[in-house]
Computed example of a mutant assay.
Amino acid sequence: MIAEDTQQTDTGRRGKKGSFFLELPGLVVIALVLALLIKSFVVQAFYIPSGSMENTLLVNDRVLVNKLVYRVRDIERGDIIVFSGVDSWDPEIEYEDPGNPIGRAFHWMGVQFGIVPGDTDYIKRVIGIPGDTVKCCDSKGRVTVNGTAIDEPYVHPGDVPSDQTFEITVPKDRLWVMGDHRSDSYDSRRHTEDPGGGTIPIEKVIGRAFAIVWPFDRATVLPIPATFAQPALHAKS
C-alpha cells in the first residue's frame, strides 16, 4: 500500500513538472506582452548611446522615461525629455541595419527594453517652452530665458553655455532643447536653419527621463535644476 502511494505521488510530481514546462512558453509570452504594454503606455527604459548629455548622463547609462507625466502636467523648463527625430534630425549615432529579419527583430526587442539604442530617439534638456525668448549669450556668457540668466551647473565641465550665438522666441507647440555637453551636442542650436528655427514639436515628445537605473552605482533621480524655478522665467508662460 505504501509503495503504491509512493508511486502515485511520484507520478503526480512528474505530471506537475510536465504541466509547468508546457505552460512555460505561454507564461513567457504573457510576461512579454505585459512588459510591452507597460513600455508602450507607462514607463520605458532607454539606452544612452552618446555623450551629448554628459556629465548628467553617460554613454551606456539606462534611464527610465515616464510616458504618462505629460498627460497630467505641461512640459517644464529643465525637464530631460526623450523625443522622436524621425524625418527631422539626423541620427547622433550610426546604426547598422542587421540585414536580416531575425537580427532586426532582436534589435527591435533590445530597443524596447533599453538594451540597445534606438536610431531615431534623442534625449535633451528643455530650455525654452512655447512663448519663451531664449538667447545666448548675455554679457557674462550665460543663456537667458525671457531676459533672465539661468545658472547651469549641469553643463559639462570646461564647456561654455554655448559656442554659438542665437536668439529665438519659441513658437506655439514647440520646444527649444539643448544637451548638457554643449560642445558635443547636436541640438536645437544646430538646426536653426530648419523649419521651426531649431525647435522640436511637442507632439514628438515620448516622455520625461526621471531616473538613471543602470549601472547601479550611478542610480539616481533626475530632478529639475533649481535655476528653472526663478519667477522671472515665467514672465511669458
Rank of each mutant, 00 (worst) to 15 (best):
M1Q: 12
T6V: 11
Q8T: 13
T9Q: 15
K16W: 15
K17T: 10
G18A: 13
L24D: 12
P25M: 15
P25K: 15
L27M: 14
A31H: 11
L34K: 11
L36K: 14
L36N: 13
L36R: 14
I38L: 12
K39N: 11
Q44F: 03
F46E: 00
S52M: 05
S52R: 01
T56R: 05
V63A: 09
V65G: 02
V65P: 00
K67H: 02
V69R: 04
I75L: 12
R77C: 09
V82E: 04
W89M: 07
P91Q: 09
E92Y: 09
N100G: 09
G103A: 09
G103C: 02
M109H: 13
Q112E: 06
G114Y: 01
I115N: 12
V116K: 04
I127W: 03
I127S: 07
G131I: 04
D132G: 07
C137W: 05
D138E: 08
S139T: 08
K140F: 14
N146C: 10
G147Q: 08
T148S: 12
A149F: 05
E152S: 07
P153G: 02
Y154G: 06
V155E: 03
V155N: 03
P157C: 11
D163G: 14
E167F: 09
E167Q: 09
R174D: 05
W176Q: 03
H181F: 07
Y186R: 10
Y186P: 01
S188K: 01
R189M: 06
R190D: 10
T192H: 07
G196R: 00
I200M: 04
E203D: 13
I206A: 08
F210L: 05
V213D: 04
T220Q: 13
L222R: 02
L222S: 06
P225N: 06
A229S: 13
Q230M: 15
L233F: 07
H234S: 15
